[in-house]
Amino acid sequence: MPDTAPRLVYRKPSPSDVQRLFAIFGDPQTNLFNPAGPMTRLDDAHRLLDRWLEQWATQGYGWWAIARIEAPHHLIGFGGVAPLNYLTERRINLGYRFAVEAWGQGYATELGRDALELAFDTLNFPEVFGLVRPDHAASIRVLEKLGLKPFGVLDDVPGKAPSRVFRVCHPTTVPG
């Protein structure tokens, strides 16, 4: 891990984050590789935020609200590790969505390192997965930088090429 000062702060999302969540998840630019497209209704943002808060309440972890250290009240994204259904199989998934203003600055890689540290050092998960659309080169590069390796494909979007699945195992776990 690089010896650099952290640039991001993370916190559990709160109900007051719904407008910022909607702004980021509703931006067509942040959904270029999302087959479902941008979020179009504030109600959808409320439902997503409610799911995240339920995850935090029942499991004690989940996606974080993310801000720059120098501007902790301005959220630039959401992400972290949380369970996700890969069709019928539940996996611990690393994911993120950043506002366009935060792109190209290495924040996804920094978030990923911090999320994997939580997943392995604190939560002691045996493995973490990443699910990415096959044409999303930037996210694939982030997963590779973080040490995730190709694991397979998931035919999760009808009529589209399968998503790529990446995996990284706990540093003390030998892959099976």
Rank of each mutant, 00 (worst) to 15 (best):
T4R: 14
G77C: 04
A67N: 08
F125S: 14
D27Q: 04
V9M: 07
L8M: 10
L75T: 05
P150S: 04
N31D: 02
I66W: 01
D50Q: 11
G77R: 05
D114P: 02
Y107C: 07
A161E: 11
L154N: 05
A5N: 10
A36W: 09
L143C: 04
G147D: 09
V132L: 01
L143V: 06
G95L: 07
Y10S: 00
D3A: 15
A99E: 10
T88Q: 07
R68D: 12
R113E: 12
I76E: 06
D135M: 04
Y96R: 09
P175Y: 05
M39C: 06
V165S: 03
P6W: 04
A71W: 05
R7P: 03
Y96L: 08
A45C: 08
F125V: 14
S139P: 11
V142A: 14
T173D: 10
P6T: 07
Y96A: 13
Q55G: 06
D156S: 04
L87D: 15
H170W: 02
A82W: 01
L8K: 11
A23P: 01
L84S: 11
V142L: 14
R47P: 02
Y10L: 10
L131W: 02
L84P: 06
F129G: 13
I140W: 03
D156M: 02
V165T: 02
E101M: 08
D43I: 06
L48I: 14
D3N: 13
D43W: 01
L21A: 09
V128I: 09
L21N: 07
L42Q: 11
K160Y: 02
A45H: 02
A65E: 12
D27Y: 01
R11C: 14
T40S: 15
L143R: 04
N85F: 01
R68A: 09
N34Q: 03
V128T: 07
A137D: 13
G147E: 08
V128M: 08
W52H: 07
D43P: 03
F78A: 08
S14G: 15
A36D: 15
R51C: 12
T88H: 06
H136T: 00
R113T: 06
N93A: 03
P28W: 01
K160N: 09
V153H: 10
A161I: 03
E127W: 03
L148K: 00
Q59H: 11
R11V: 12
A45E: 06
P13Q: 10
A102N: 08
R20E: 06
V142R: 13
P15V: 13
